[in-house]
Design a protein around this nucleic acid. Structure first.
Lengths: 214, 214
DNA sequence: CCCTAAGTTGAGGTGGCTATCAACTTAGAA
DNA sequence: TTCTAAGTTGATAGCCACCTCAACTTAGGG
């Protein structure tokens, strides 16, 4: 690849990182091209489309953030504290970075690397959940497939309140977490989603234009 | 008004009712005009714009549904049962009628009648909450201003899962409700939104094009 | 320094939606 | 029946976003 082409790839990646973060993964690609100082055509030449751009930009960011959260969560002595800390950190990320919020609550069909990282993350969460279950600190009927409810909720609350009450999600999350302790448990009216359903639903979300996005 | 004009108003209102219900209050107005068998121009002639159309079509529907839910809720002997029944019915409406889902979780600046009805409904909910508080059956720190969190959550879950797991919201709601019992309560990290913040946020949501779209 | 493959550009086609308006049609009173 | 105010229409302009491509520019090897 020629030097100028490589330079443009880098500029585009940087711009995409910034703009995705500010406006979510549905941000107009033209905006990104403009921020990178190139034309939209170049963006398509270099990346081919939105999903490929996402897959070029997001995985590293997401993996780093998610890994750090996991490290901190696993450092907690109490499994419940670990579980809730992880969720809180995840929501914090969602609140400060719309790109992460989208990456974590949707799936983009052609962003393979990103999907793998998200799957890996889910496995990590399964571990946290298992530990909390084993310690009797998390209601037994909560499964990893229920996690998306939390992510969708936070993502919605965050987007709705970001400009007017940026900490509102903490309150909403606290209500939810209080429902996840064993003592709070009452029989649930429906079984959890299957992993396939979760995947399919998240793909649907990623395929829709405009999300809740600007 | 001429007879044909009145007839068109009726056709448009009927079509709007149907299409809003299926696709939400962001449905393309052209679609509605087409379903009514008139041109888009006529829709604008008769109603002037989306908000006016919403305000012409939705208030009666919403009021009827909300009133019935309130009647049934107030018929419950236990205030907690009343409160949760009301929320469940509200969510059921959201699940079966995207228009109601939008009407209840957003505000449209120029839909005055609808806004009044939503405000009135909020007052009813305040009553339910007060009774449940008085009976010690609802955690004391839950306020009417926290209700939107539930509505936003359900609205998101319903839209995401409608086509693949139409009952998923029941499980998500159950987790949430389990967090609202007094026994589940742990200190909350942030104060509730003010009524003004809730209003402003809901207006923002209504003003965005495409919501979770289609 | 020249030449060409690699790369960029920006204009333009596509599509979806909103909103308006001059030209046409029609209800219904006189 | 006639006439006109009321009403409808379809074309159109404006947005915004996606995506493509022929024409142009340039890096960098020979």
């Amino acid at each position: 690849m020629r030097r100028d082409a490589r330079r443009n790839v880098e500029r585009l990646a940087t711009a995409a990182g910034q703009i995705f973060r500010e406006r979510g993964l549905d941000a107009p690609l033209e905006e990104i091209a403009k921020a990178a100082g190139v034309s939209a055509g170049t963006l398509y030449n270099r990346f081919g489309g939105r999903d490929a751009l996402i897959d070029a930009v997001m995985p590293d960011v997401v993996e780093a953030k998610v890994r750090e959260a996991m490290v901190r969560a696993e450092a907690e002595a109490d499994p419940w504290d670990g579980f809730t800390l992880y969720l809180t950190l995840l929501c914090e990320m969602q609140a400060t970075d719309l790109a992460v919020s989208d990456a974590v609550s949707r799936r983009y069909a052609d962003a393979k690397r990103l999907n793998e990282i998200c799957e890996a993350q889910m496995d990590g969460v399964r571990g946290l959940i298992a530990k909390a279950h084993a310690a009797g600190r998390l209601r037994a009927d909560f499964t990893a497939e229920d996690l998306p409810y939390l992510l969708w909720t936070t993502s919605t609350v965050v987007r709705a309140t970001a400009s007017r009450a940026p900490d509102a999600w903490r309150r909403a999350l606290a209500f939810t977490l209080d429902g996840l302790r064993p003592a709070a448990a009452h029989p649930l009216p429906a079984p959890p989603l299957t992993a396939e359903q979760v995947h399919a639903v998240m793909l649907d979300l990623g395929a829709k234009r405009s999300g809740q996005g600007r």
